[in-house]
Design a protein around this nucleic acid. Structure first.
Lengths: 211, 211
DNA sequence: TATAATTGTTAAATTGTGAAACAATTGCGA
DNA sequence: TCGCAATTGTTTCACAATTTAACAATTATA
């Protein structure tokens, strides 16, 4: 069963999860792959195969229990537990993320925010006092942090990542517009907002000039 | 030449662009596909093939001119012009984006921000007065807006998109955690930050439990 | 119990990638 | 100027990954 799961499958799991949450909110408690296919715009076979990578969650002749499937996907994604999170970089993105209540609701506790700009250190941001990155080492020894979010300028992203990894951080969510590389054994997600904007720009041009 | 370019190629263009910008900052003005291959971790053949989708930008026996290639990719992505942008939703994400100077530098002029919460309308956000969405129709008639960024809660995302499209908007950058669907002829990029966070959570679990 | 529905699973088709090869072109040093 | 080395543009092939189709197995339900 546990052959390496492809990245494409993993990337679809959050979509399934979101969709199932919607269904749950609508008090629907049973769903078939063909119905999901219609509403999500994915192929029904693909959905069944994706889900089957992790085990047989459905019931032949019946479909999938919304509640059960949502629960299973949450477990697979690791959303059945809480995470302690810190933010590096108290710029606009960092400030936006520290105040984003949804993460908190979903099990990601954003605890503290750090910056290397002494002008920002000590100031208040959405109820959190900005701390100095020089205090990071001691902080990480004293607190059990699971995830660090990098919101620095791109020039500082890699060195921030190196620092965090050297202090034992195992997961990095990177918002700086530069890929950060880390050793095997550390998880990274590079967000790259500007890449997404560029692709939108391309698509717009494509639409306007006509395919 | 203009066979349909695959999405995989398009998604790599911003990465080439970023890399070329780095080279330019280092005052490097010539680059070969094999060198790019080493530093970007892509196959050299693939790089040459990708670039060749859009025309022959290199010079045999020499390589690619950094300046020229960067310029060409910018043109392909539509970054050789300026765009007028508005933001719908003055929550944390919306506020972060309106103040994000990088976009401005890259040709995306974020002009105004709208919200349907009357408590927010009229308040000041990073030098912009929050306007009411009820004023959107007149605003869009009076101003030539290229791109709208949706930063509303997920429940309002689709109706915001519908409204924008009905007023003639041709490109939507969606930050709400729900896919928005639009008619053919309108470009959409769904960002889905939480999806990315979930994938990070999955990767972390994978690392910790050991693959 | 028969039938319709639906999954789990296998097979086929499609797409994307990696690697090699090579002619064409150019830079550059002798 | 000439010839060699470098490098692209382009093709081909093989292979890996992904998607789609097909269908047997199973279950719900009337």
């Amino acid at each position: 069963m546990s052959d390496k799961i492809s990245a494409a499958v993993i990337r679809r799991l959050p979509k399934y999860y979101r969709y199932l949450e919607e269904l749950k909110n609508k008090d629907i408690d049973k769903i078939s792959s063909s119905q999901m296919s219609l509403e999500m715009g994915l192929n029904a076979s693909q959905i069944r195969r994706d889900l089957n990578c992790f085990g047989g969650f459905g019931q032949q002749g019946y479909g999938y229990s919304v509640e059960k499937l949502k629960h299973e996907i949450a477990r697979i994604l690791g959303l059945d537990q809480r995470y302690n999170v810190i933010i590096i970089g108290a710029g606009r993105i960092g400030q936006a993320l520290i105040g984003y209540q949804n993460f908190m609701l979903e099990g990601f506790n954003v605890l503290d925010i750090f910056d290397n700009d002494l002008q920002k250190v000590g100031t208040e941001v959405v109820g959190h006092t900005v701390q100095s990155v020089t205090a990071l080492c001691d902080y990480l020894k004293a607190n059990n942090i699971d995830i660090a979010i990098i919101c620095t300028p791109k020039e500082e992203a890699q060195q921030s990542a190196d620092l965090l990894v050297s202090f034992g951080i195992k997961a990095i969510w990177n918002f700086a517009p530069a890929d950060v590389a880390v050793r095997k054994g550390v998880a990274v997600e590079n967000v790259h907002l500007s890449d997404s904007l560029y692709v939108l720009s391309y698509k717009l041009k494509e639409k306007v000039t006509g395919i």
